[in-house]
Computed example of a mutant assay.
Amino acid sequence: MKPETMLPDHIDTVQANGITVRKGSVGAFLASWRVLSNPSQSDDSRAAAREDLIALLPALTALGLFDVFEARDPRLRELIAQGRGGA
Score class of each variant (00 low, 15 high):
M1A: 15
M1N: 08
K2G: 14
P3E: 07
E4W: 02
E4Q: 03
T5Y: 12
M6S: 12
M6K: 10
L7D: 07
L7N: 01
L7C: 02
H10G: 14
H10L: 14
I11K: 10
I11D: 06
T13H: 14
T13M: 12
T13K: 15
T13P: 08
V14I: 14
V14E: 06
A16W: 02
A16G: 04
A16I: 01
A16H: 06
N17P: 00
N17V: 08
N17L: 13
N17Y: 06
G18Y: 11
I19G: 05
I19L: 10
I19Y: 08
T20D: 00
R22N: 11
R22S: 05
R22L: 05
K23R: 15
G24W: 12
G24F: 00
G24E: 04
S25I: 04
A28I: 01
L30N: 11
L30I: 12
L30C: 04
L30G: 09
A31I: 04
A31M: 01
W33P: 02
W33F: 08
R34W: 00
L36A: 13
S37D: 01
S37M: 04
S37I: 00
N38P: 14
N38E: 12
S40A: 04
Q41H: 12
D43P: 00
D43N: 03
D44I: 11
R46Y: 00
R46A: 07
R46F: 05
R46D: 04
A47F: 08
A47N: 07
A49W: 05
A49Q: 12
A49H: 00
A49F: 09
R50D: 10
R50W: 13
E51W: 07
E51F: 05
D52G: 13
D52P: 11
L53R: 14
L53W: 13
L53Y: 15
L53T: 12
L53D: 06
I54H: 09
I54C: 13
I54W: 03
L56I: 10
L57E: 13
P58V: 12
P58Y: 07
A59Y: 11
A59I: 14
A59C: 14
A59P: 15
L60N: 09
L60F: 02
L60K: 05
L60M: 13
T61V: 08
T61I: 00
L63N: 00
L63I: 10
G64V: 02
G64D: 09
L65I: 15
F66R: 07
F66Y: 14
D67W: 04
V68S: 10
V68R: 11
F69V: 11
F69H: 01
E70N: 05
D73W: 01
D73L: 05
P74W: 04
P74G: 02
R75N: 03
R75H: 01
L76V: 13
L76H: 00
R77T: 06
R77E: 07
E78F: 06
L79S: 03
L79W: 01
A81V: 02
A81G: 01
Q82N: 12
Q82C: 00
R84Y: 08
G85M: 07
G86H: 11
G86D: 10
G86W: 08
G86K: 06
A87M: 03
